[in-house]
Design a protein around this nucleic acid. Structure first.
Lengths: 240, 240
DNA sequence: GTCTATATCCCGATAGAC
DNA sequence: GTCTATCGGGATATAGAC
């Protein structure tokens, strides 16, 4: 019996609209053309078949090289995975950090912007995002921890935006952690089902999910999930 | 270099609260004790390390058997995966079908019930749910198609509930497919992060996500995502 | 830098004793 | 039904020619 059965070859994937996205933007520009092409091939293979079902031959075939060529550019298959996941996490963190910076904007506008852009990013890079979210088990413990640290920092950025709105009374009293998690959950899950060829553009989805996020925190929306009695005078607050 | 490195052994996982859930409820009761125990061990290994990173030896070690014993009960490793994924999908479909049946309930109550229960199910069976959602690539094409058919039927059940509320005016005019997808997205994503030991009980999350679902369809909620101009007199409708 | 060839390892599945 | 032992195959990674 065959030990593994990658359902799709790199050649198949290169032509399949299911696995098209903008992940080739992500690679460090100090890298040469060949390693960048290898990452682009690898990200598709990992996304479609999984890290462990992908062979180094699969990755190399995607750029018309033979198996050994990979090791001139990367020391191991795991490091190819790490490079992809690290790049994805760092890029998205840098992206949303910039968006969260202008504290002059209203809390609502800030939330709308950061959620819509985060969503758009995940839609546009949905193939890489899929690997970033669902192939973490392929990393070594050290690399996994390194990625986790970036994830925590990303969560902190979002929680700060939500907490600010709660603090200044723009948002109602809610469990910041729980509500933030639900907001991010929607965007992250895009990696599972989104396709660029589908009927929702990244921008449309970004708008839609930003609307949802605002509904989760809006005073007059029928969404609960509030902290029962942490702040007694919260009910007395009015929207500015 | 080692070919694979499953980060956690079956023994580790059995004691790890991260991988505790109620998935042992799922297996067909016509099966014997040993195959059911094997499925329970396998679902944890697949969830923690991935299908391809899990060896048949890993699965068997989880129930103190040696490698060969698996093949008395299952013809292949892939069929162990299929059994898990099929059981998970069939159970959840049967569950929500029953809930969607009483057409006497109001559209809003029906939606609240089906979403909260679907969410609770995914929380309580989050380890199996993780395998059901993220290990589909390990299936043979035939088994994959079989599972996809159940998924489509599940989606249809939810879309029918949402569409009914739109048709009878309980819900506002929305893109049924898009909004339903967002509702399910939240519950499905639980497999990625949820833990029974965490601060959210399945029931609490079920309530919270049902609130969110209702906010997505409620007339007076500030959530858009509506179909622009499909039904001209929709704006004239009032909630019954 | 890329190729071919290969070292080394270990997995899925089977055979046969008990 | 479970064990031990093993077959066959294919994986990662390396060596050395070009």
């Amino acid at each position: 019996m065959a030990r593994r059965q990658a359902r799709f070859t790199a050649q198949d994937l290169a032509d399949d609209p299911r696995w098209q996205d903008h992940s080739s933007d992500l690679w460090n520009k100090t890298l040469g053309d060949v390693p960048r092409a290898l990452l682009t091939s690898a990200v598709r293979c990992f996304a479609a078949n999984g890290f462990h079902a992908t062979t180094t031959r699969d990755i190399c075939e995607g750029v018309n090289l033979t198996a050994g060529a990979l090791y001139v550019h990367f020391p191991s298959k795991e490091l190819v995975l790490f490079e992809i996941i690290r790049a994805g996490h760092q890029r998205v963190l840098a992206y949303i950090r910039d968006l969260a910076a202008p504290a002059s904007a209203s809390s609502a506008d800030q939330l709308r912007t950061i959620i819509s852009r985060y969503t758009e990013w995940h839609a546009r890079h949905h193939v890489a995002a899929r690997v970033c979210q669902y192939e973490l088990a392929g990393l070594t413990p050290q690399h996994y921890d390194e990625v986790l640290e970036i994830r925590h920092e990303t969560n902190r950025v979002f929680r700060r935006v939500v907490a600010r709105g709660v603090a200044d009374g723009s948002f109602k009293q809610i469990d910041v952690k729980r509500v933030t998690r639900a907001m991010l959950s929607l965007s992250i899950d895009l990696g599972r089902w989104y396709r660029l060829e589908g009927s929702d553009s990244p921008e449309q989805l970004g708008e839609f999910y930003a609307d949802l996020a605002l509904a989760m925190v809006s005073h007059d929306a029928p969404v609960r999930g509030a902290v029962p009695a942490l702040d007694g005078d919260a009910a007395a607050r009015v929207r500015p």
